[in-house]
Write a protein that binds this DNA or RNA. Structure first.
Length: 625
DNA sequence: TTAGGGTTAG
């Protein structure tokens, strides 16, 4: 309801605000629809059509950045910068610190943080009187190199040189702490700034704290800080709001996001920008709320905000994840028509989309065509294709791809290794997997939750549950082992290897660990209990699901039914089927075939056939006939 | 007349 009201008023409201704020939203010229755009309307799904319609009606992309270029923006390579620096140091008198700062800035823009620090040191050595500007750039470089500690050392340098660190310097350090996940220290510094009046926190200080809080999943505290800054007469801006909106969207709390969005626009009079829209569109895509995505695209058009390459990329990715690669291709065509260049990210999504459908030739074609588009695949692109080959069990191709990554001078990361490991495990090449795992560790790569899960799962599925358990014990009492997914993999693995006792111990350990079983954990455990013929316990666990706020899904019913049928325990079967009917669930192929066998053998009442018939999904209708 | 915060891909 809220959404409808918003959609209805927003256009007019924003238009009115724009009029007040002058011409900053000048509408770009309309371009006529191209032939391929018109063709775009003929795509498959209904929501696609609405989508493309929204896209087709919006204006062409305009970059809009016409700021004058400083001399230092012409420095396009590190070599240029270093040469210029040398030249500057030889001039007499020395150029002002401002000139040097501009150069340092150009070098950091190119992300050459170490070099920038070298230059800064040289500046100090030759006696350039550094100020809070050049110092804050140097501190920022330390932070970006994950050496915030050195940033604090430079803060000491500030004091020695009688430069009083200002709010920008502190903001940079706060950002560095957040980058290193040192949220508690950031909080301490933030409080210290206020308590000791070291500087007056400004909108960037608050936004940096908000970003960190969101990163740690504390959306509520982030929102509280947003209120606090308002009270302290530091008006939150679009960045502060976008940060929280992004976090809410990523947490799939889209309704909360829209509530905040309304507050931002209607109560605070802050106009959304393209990032706000991208964020909300991303959140809606994540939930598959396509109609609303269309509305947002339309709304962007209404308020004259052109979609940018990220907007299109989000749509491409969302389509690919849905398996609608043709629609994703259509979005890319529209981008190109409008002069918005798809980048490597856009094409990586497309490759992913093809891989997901097992269309490896098409994925490969996209990959091979990158070069003539002037795009260089990065390690993520390679990982996508590698993942495709692995999932489609084309292990030889996958290994060729794996080798190619290093040949291209790219660094294999944890995702590359875990993708390849998963592939090797899937085809049962445990020896090769072991070798790769050792290589990965020799590279100094640290296991993350996903890689760890893949390895445990791979070992279990290759009948090496003991080895999985040794790894689990080796990892010990760490964050990696405080994850329900890890436990579920092991419980499942132990069951599949016939080690039910181990599965049961692991399941019982969950409460001690303070971990909440998820749907999959319950299903795996119910399956294990049924496998042991412990039907009463299986039933009790099944009943517990509802009470634990994790109601049984389709799989839970099928697992329990299979347990009952295999153990000739028919008492609850009809009741379960009726419940399934009530919940609009359906039987899967293996459960259905068990039913058919038992009815044929005369173990089950034929009267149940009608009920079973209602639970057969369309695609399995043939089986029943 | 030089510095700081926000959005996309595994």
């Amino acid at each position: 309801m809220m959404m409808t009201r918003t959609r209805f008023h927003l256009h007019a409201f924003i238009k009115q605000q724009q009029a007040v704020k002058g011409n900053s939203f000048l509408r770009p010229l309309k371009t006529p629809l191209s032939h391929s755009q018109q063709l775009g309307l003929q795509f498959s799904s209904t929501h696609t059509t609405t989508f493309l319609a929204s896209l087709l009606h919006s204006d062409s992309f305009s970059n809009g950045d016409h700021r004058p270029q400083s001399k230092f923006q012409k420095v396009t390579s590190l070599d240029d910068a270093l040469n210029l620096f040398d030249e500057m140091t030889q001039r007499r008198p020395l150029p002002s610190v401002i000139k040097f700062t501009q150069l340092l800035n150009a070098v950091t823009k190119m992300k050459h943080f170490s070099s920038c620090l070298d230059l800064f040191r040289q500046m100090c050595a030759i006696g350039v009187p550094v100020d809070e500007y050049s110092l804050s750039i140097a501190i920022r470089c330390c932070c970006r190199l994950y050496r915030t500690k050195d940033g604090f050392a430079l803060l000491g340098c500030c004091f020695r040189r009688a430069v009083v660190p200002n709010v920008v310097v502190y903001n940079t350090l706060l950002d560095g702490l957040m980058l290193e996940d040192r949220i508690l220290e950031a909080e301490r510094l933030f409080k210290k700034l206020i308590k000791h009046k070291l500087c007056e926190p400004d909108v960037v200080t608050y936004s940096t704290m908000i970003k960190g809080l969101c990163k740690f999943g504390s959306n509520d505290i982030a929102i509280a800080l947003l209120r606090l800054m308002d009270e302290r007469r530091c008006k939150p801006d679009i960045v502060a709001y976008n940060t929280i909106l992004d976090s809410l969207c990523k947490d799939r709390k889209i309704d909360d996001a829209f509530k905040l969005f309304n507050e931002m626009v209607f109560d605070k009079g802050i106009l959304p920008n393209v990032i706000t829209y991208n964020t909300l569109i991303y959140g809606l895509c994540l939930l598959g709320r396509w109609e609303e995505v269309s509305k947002m695209l339309k709304e962007m058009e209404d308020v004259s905000i052109s979609p940018n390459f990220r907007t299109y990329s989000i749509l491409v990715d969302a389509f690919c994840k849905e398996g609608k690669v043709d629609d994703a291709e259509a979005v890319i065509d529209i981008m190109v028509e409008r002069g918005v260049s798809p980048n490597i990210v856009t094409y990586s999504s497309l490759i992913d989309g093809y891989c997901l459908r097992g269309e490896m030739n098409k994925a490969r074609n996209v990959f091979d065509s990158l070069k003539c588009k002037g795009l260089v695949p990065d390690v993520v692109t390679y990982n996508s294709l590698l993942n495709g080959y692995c999932k489609n069990l084309e292990i030889e191709e996958a290994m060729l791809m794996f080798d190619e990554i290093t040949k291209k001078g790219l660094k294999l990361n944890i995702v590359t290794y875990s993708t390849m490991l998963q592939g090797l495990f899937r085809v049962g090449r445990r020896g090769a997997a072991r070798k790769l795992f050792d290589e990965m560790r020799a590279q100094g790569l640290v296991l993350n939750e996903c890689a760890y899960g893949i390895i445990l799962d791979g070992l279990c599925n290759n009948q090496h549950v003991e080895e999985a358990l040794s790894l689990f014990h080796l990892v010990g009492d760490s964050k990696l082992n405080s994850n329900i997914v890890v436990y579920t993999i092991l419980i499942d693995g132990a069951n599949k290897c016939g080690k039910f006792d181990i599965a049961k111990d692991l399941f019982n350990a969950l409460t001690l660990k303070g971990l909440q079983p998820n749907l999959r954990t319950y299903n795996v455990m119910i399956s294990g209990l049924c496998g042991e013929g412990l039907l009463e316990e299986a039933k009790q666990l099944f009943l517990k699901m509802d009470d634990s706020g994790c109601p049984p899904n389709n799989v839970s019913y099928c697992v329990l039914l299979q347990g009952y049928l295999k153990n000739q325990h028919y008492d609850d079967v009809e009741m379960l089927l009726q419940e399934m009917d009530g919940r609009s669930y359906s039987l899967d192929a293996s459960t259905l075939s068990l039913f058919i066998d038992q009815i044929a053998a005369g173990s089950l009442d034929r009267n149940m056939l009608k009920l079973i018939g209602r639970l057969v999904p369309k695609e399995l209708m043939g089986t029943l006939a």
